[in-house]
Design a protein around this nucleic acid. Sequence first.
DNA 1: GAAAAAATTTAAGCTTACTTAAAAATATTT
DNA 2: AAATATTTTTAAGTAAGCTTAAATTTTTTC
Lengths: 219, 219
Amino acid sequence: MSIAIENFVKAIYKNGKRDNNDTKPGNIAKELGISNAAATDMAQKLASKDLLHYEKYQALKLTDKGNKMALNVVRKHRLWESLLFKLFDMSLHDIHREAELLEHQTSDLLAEKISEYLGNPKFDPHGDPIPNADGEITTTDTSVALSQTSEGKKYIISRLMSDDKEFFDFCAQHGLKYGNTLLVSKQFNKNKMTQILINNNTILLNEDFSSIIYVNESI
Amino acid sequence: MSIAIENFVKAIYKNGKRDNNDTKPGNIAKELGISNAAATDMAQKLASKDLLHYEKYQALKLTDKGNKMALNVVRKHRLWESLLFKLFDMSLHDIHREAELLEHQTSDLLAEKISEYLGNPKFDPHGDPIPNADGEITTTDTSVALSQTSEGKKYIISRLMSDDKEFFDFCAQHGLKYGNTLLVSKQFNKNKMTQILINNNTILLNEDFSSIIYVNESI
DNA sequence: GAAAAAATTTAAGCTTACTTAAAAATATTT
DNA sequence: AAATATTTTTAAGTAAGCTTAAATTTTTTC
């Protein structure tokens, strides 16, 4: 299957996870940077390949086959991120960009080799779960967005859900890293802001950021 | 530049090295598995991009710009081969196939990181020289094909110039590996065969193989 | 050196993955 | 619920990278 198809299917998968299943062509088009017309076109084409269910004016839904393809690509992406993160000193954003390309040129065999080499990790450097070779995610995610946490409690960062360079630069600068601990010192519910203490620094996060930083309660 | 263009330029570069500069469109077409017409077409297109010199019915010659592009791709290919060879237990042929794809999806930055990680190697696992970031090959190659060697002398394998699975399987089976030592026990000049002793086994090579195994005299 | 064979080029056409523009349907606002 | 705005779809068109078939040029053979 082509790179365009892999990216299309992946975009549906990711949008389905994120935005309350808003997987109409327009949203996928926005994600991929193509026109709405191109997205509709592609959707119809992929329906004929049994990768998704298409009904005029309705949201796109992946078939089992499409879902498996998406997870296969996601697996390769996250394995590459894990490998590059381990071997090289590169920013998370740069790593993401490289993985975005490499994921489409990776045989299942190579993916297996990478996974083995890394000790079959369950999570990548962002805390995102790595599907296994059968396209299954076996881990259960108990984490919540920082925006949903309670004042006064300690949390461990479990996931940085983004691919935005500014966000990652911000994270790198303030020690917001997978596995690090922070304290939620205040929730400004009215203003939708979250105040945290990390590395002895107090940081005020707006909802843009507090909704994509996921954490688990520290015990 | 597209994958098709990178591969085209690379094919001219490689053919120029190998077959006495037989870089007419037909040969490139054969190398790439496309029609002669497609090769002519592409050649004309790349001439307009200043990547090669095109004259009707003549051999294709890369411009400096084209040569640099080819060497950049070759560099990435050989760096990937070196990395995969180091990290994973895979056959040389499998490694070659993966590198063939990855080479086109690798930023200069990532290539640098791979090179650094490996200690800026000068040669890949086949003994092929790795161009530097400026597209220069700084090593001087004093090796000769096994077919050109002298009876009774010891040699060290310096290069396995092929991408054929059968050849690599043969090599793997008989210990023909970069860096290994062998003795040329007899040259059958009339029949164009070379008899070698390696790992206490005597092997008779025909010209197909003796012309792509390169060696340096052992001192 | 003429005839035959092989290679190169041109021409026309195809598929993929897009585009823009206009038409049709759905969603939102008031 | 009508009017307006937004989305989706259809239609027509484009560029890249191929294909096959036919014409042209070069190379080889006798």
